[in-house]
Nucleic acid binder design. Structure first.
Lengths: 191, 191
DNA sequence: CGTTCAGTTGACTAAGGTCAATTCCCGTGG
DNA sequence: CCACGGGAATTGACCTTAGTCAACTGAACG
């Protein structure tokens, strides 16, 4: 629903209803089934998606091995921004862990909005800044935290994750093997 | 010199000379000595710096241990963007590895520019997008690459770095101990 | 009921960390 | 000009920790 996107923006950005409606009018609904690709490595990502319902997975492929970059659940934006912004092939896969409903906006529509009104340019800037700070936090955690700490942070940030995704994918996200995550969890319940 | 900033923007952003001059007029020169702080953990960063000459170091403090986040050399922007953008205390130190000359712009001046003209808003968006993609690349490398690969990437990206900074700081950047970097280097020359 | 696959557990291995000793480099002062 | 001192870098011996491999358990599904 468009209302979900409205609420998402309202939480961090004051924008007039009228302009918000123009913005929302550019989004189109998209339905994907569990296992479907939203973005495939090597192809250019030409749209940004907003997940209204469902769960998706960003993953790198390291010579055969799947490395989870991020889980994206309801009420989040998703794309390969690098591919989207620079019109170059994506370096990751984005797939659906569950049947997923999206609202998508195309690159061209977004650029058109930017030229239309400085308010949209500002939305773009604030979103880029927010994304940027999120990635910075992620890099910081990768530099400073061990797997156990990152596990605890992940489940506190996304408490429903263990119910929705298999544990071996969480292990991949943490950068450890499933056996190691199993041992981390065992140690945690003992304490 | 202002000209360095002009060139920096020219390389990735078309902006009219007139507007660029307004932008540049907001920058002030700042000189720091080797060892000086540009940003101190716990204090709010209220300005963005552009290094015209010198070398700086972003570092986290992990209970006493220094963890290098990034080296910043000539012709680069620098601040704790998270602190700068959200007006919250910085979570890292930024110090000078060498005597350093900067051009700095304040948060208020930057926000004023944003309201002045959509062109500035656009500059802000493009810079945020560029920063964002840089951090994404960094996180990707932290997830996928081992210390040896990250070392090779670092010295190919910044060939002069080994001459300018001690090796134990590079080890810290790579997330390994000085002994380990020494062994990595030994192995590399043998091959 | 049996197959399948995720998750757990144990034994072993390998890679990086730790600690200590030694060498190298460079600036300072005799 | 050379000797010395101190921090950086290297090297070796040992230890800790996560990875590997294999066996086993358990829940889900036909």
């Amino acid at each position: 629903m468009s209302e979900d996107i409205s609420q998402y923006f309202a939480q961090f950005l004051p924008i007039e209803r009228e302009k918000l409606d123009i913005f929302l009018s550019k989004f189109k609904a998209k339905s994907l089934k569990k296992g479907d690709y939203f973005i495939q490595e090597g192809q250019v990502s030409r749209e940004v998606g907003f997940i209204t319902k469902g769960a998706m997975l960003c993953a790198y492929n390291k010579n055969g091995e799947v490395i989870i970059d991020e889980f994206s659940l309801d009420k989040e934006f998703i794309t390969d921004y690098n591919s989207f912004l620079t019109n170059t092939p994506a370096d990751k896969d984005v797939t659906c862990l569950e049947d997923t409903e999206l609202m998508v906006i195309s690159y061209n529509d977004l650029q058109e909005l930017y030229t239309l009104d400085a308010a949209f340019e500002k939305v773009g800037r604030l979103m880029a800044e927010a994304l940027f700070m999120g990635w910075q936090q992620k890099a910081k955690s990768l530099m400073l935290d061990d797997a156990e700490t990152r596990y605890l942070k992940l489940i506190s940030r996304r408490p429903d994750l263990p119910q929705r995704v298999p544990q071996y994918l969480i292990a991949s996200y943490l950068g450890v093997k499933p056996e190691t995550l199993s041992r981390i969890r065992k140690k945690l319940v003992k304490n």
